[in-house]
Design a protein around this nucleic acid. Structure first.
Lengths: 171, 171
DNA sequence: TAGACGTAGA
DNA sequence: TCTACGTCTA
């Protein structure tokens, strides 16, 4: 269920608070938080431009985030990341600035909000997807891995004024 | 939900008739017809011996069945079959007589019943999983593909006396 | 048709 | 940890 008006799609989802937890990706889809079954980057076409709507950080790629209000999110594609289906049997390839990667770049250009869902490992003996709130893509870079493969890195910053994930999670 | 007694596990499932249709694999699991999410061969350990319980023919491997009461079912493993996840990017390898393949062989030796579910393509504009009834594994062979890869073929025959799938499906 | 930061069982 | 005859979107 998607609309062409960014104002009705981007940003928070009605009824979902920061810290809300979900066990399955399909639940994120059902409530409209992240409308992709497996893909980490959801996006839609708004008046001819693809903008990112939400991303899920499941730690399948190497997203070395520093502080809690910064997030480094890897682009998708290229069979990058050690936990991919097919594992290390698939040869890594250059990632391309297309699909979700391009949408994230467009979101950077337009400074639009992106919802972030993080997979929290070992919460209450289980892994959970947790809504972390809204971020903005401030920068991106083409990195080269040790094998010489191009991988995109998107640098997101959490929009200030939101309650911290820690406080909402109540560990 | 599995028991150690083959008589309570093998054979028909209470309430499920030949020709019953299901859209999703998970439905087969919920009613106990085939308790695997993705794997085509379900089996369990009965007094130390793994026996096949049910198989799903989704046509991902090349199962060239002849008549309607015969079924040639390919073993699993080895990244065989053109419709595999990862597609043709994964190198095919020899299949091994283990897991589901071994269970099917054991079922052959013991002449135990195996439930068969077939994916029917284009039924009522949709693909459906249809319960086809009970078969027995009569033979198996190690085949070599054109690339020299070992693939198992299990030759199953439908147990006589069951209503035909055609008659129960009411095309 | 191919790709995707899934998911459960062995 | 790895596999597996899935399943949806683009």
């Amino acid at each position: 269920l998607k609309w062409k008006d960014p104002e009705k799609v981007l940003g928070h989802v009605c009824g979902v608070q920061i810290g809300d937890k979900f066990k399955y990706r399909v639940q994120l889809k059902m409530i409209g938080l992240h409308c992709q079954d497996q893909c980490g980057i959801d996006y839609a076409n708004f008046n001819g431009l693809n903008l990112a709507i939400s991303i899920v950080d499941s730690h399948r790629y190497s997203n070395d985030s520093g502080s809690s209000d910064k997030l480094v999110y890897s682009g998708h594609g290229g069979h990058v990341g050690p936990k991919f289906n097919g594992g290390d049997k698939l040869k890594p390839e250059d990632q391309k600035l297309e699909k979700g990667n391009l949408a994230l770049k467009n979101s950077m250009d337009r400074k639009t909000q992106v919802r972030v869902i993080k997979k929290v490992v070992g919460y209450d003996k289980d892994d959970m997807f947790v809504y972390d709130g809204l971020y903005v893509v401030d920068d991106y870079a083409e990195k080269k891995t040790a094998e010489g493969i191009i991988v995109f890195k998107f640098y997101l910053n959490r929009i200030p004024g939101q309650p911290s994930l820690q406080s909402m999670l109540k560990w």
